[in-house]
């Protein structure tokens, strides 16, 4: 079977600094894959390389078997990959409703239409309503996104990411800065919204990682040192040594 994402021998350096070294990663369709690693390991860079935010210095990234590295982000998005951001990245001066509508637009084939009224686009509006109900923001639809409380902005961030119906969803620390209760809600939300899709997630919270992921890859200093099921990773001595250590005992 063709994997959803395949990273082949990718290197990324900024000037002389090598951030990612010979990265190889294979994520099957329908899998929930977590990428973990200590701070500065290159997790966000990996995400930026996969989503087209950065182009690799060498190597290829494949999405559903097609090479996408070097394409601009919007091209990769149109091929079925959508990502969220570690720092909330919504359309701050627009309403919640318009935020999600904009995220649905391209996927419903509206392109750059300037001859149709948004309010008449039944398909767009129905999809938006469904997403808003999914992320429990239906009652907040007319609030300016920048004025939402933090946890709700995070929910909107996830809503924007999944709204276009991409098969591959990648989430960069979706629960960062959330309380325990908010994290649990966010996890349930992510699980529900990414059913039957491929999910790649970067996360610091080990409860989230082990509760959500089918497979885990451990990234240390730009290299993947281990990849496997949660049980395998938990018992991998290299991982324990390099990264999990104390946190594995706590979890």
């Amino acid at each position: 079977m063709i994997p959803a994402i395949e990273v082949r021998a990718v290197n990324k350096s900024f000037g002389n600094v090598e951030i990612i070294r010979n990265l190889n990663l294979r994520i099957e369709k329908g899998e929930r894959h977590a990428v973990i690693g200590p701070n500065g390991a290159g997790k966000s860079t990996t995400f930026n390389l996969i989503s087209g935010y950065l182009a690799p210095t060498s190597g290829d990234v494949l999405l559903n078997g097609q090479v996408v590295s070097g394409l601009p982000p919007f091209e990769i998005n149109r091929r079925g990959l959508s990502r969220s951001f570690q720092l909330t990245n919504v359309f701050a001066r627009m309403t919640v409703w318009d935020n999600v509508r904009c995220a649905v637009l391209w996927a419903s084939g509206q392109r750059y239409a300037f001859w149709k009224s948004m309010d008449d686009l039944q398909d767009v509006n129905e999809r938006t309503i469904r997403i808003l109900e999914d992320i429990h923001l239906a009652a907040r639809r007319d609030v300016i996104a920048g004025l939402l409380p933090y946890a709700e902005q995070r929910a909107l961030e996830i809503g924007i990411t999944v709204a276009g119906g991409s098969d591959v969803i990648i989430l960069d620390e979706p629960t960062a800065g959330m309380s325990r209760a908010e994290t649990d809600r966010a996890m349930a939300l992510i699980k529900r919204l990414t059913e039957e899709r491929t999910l790649v997630i970067v996360e610091h919270d080990m409860n989230v990682v082990f509760g959500l992921a089918d497979r885990i890859s451990v990234l240390v200093y730009g290299e993947i040192i281990a990849s496997g099921t949660p049980a395998e990773i938990r018992n991998d001595p290299r991982v324990k040594e390099a990264y999990l250590g104390q946190e594995a005992v706590d979890a």
Partner: peptide, 28 residues
């Protein structure tokens, strides 16, 4: 005025607010 209420008009606002994110919902 009508232009502001079309898909292009809305995406213009989105580009104003966050040109980076617009790329990740499929727009150039």
């Amino acid at each position: 005025y009508a232009l502001t209420r079309t898909p292009l008009g809305k995406i213009c606002n989105a580009v104003r607010d966050n040109p980076e994110r617009v790329q990740f919902v499929g727009y150039d």
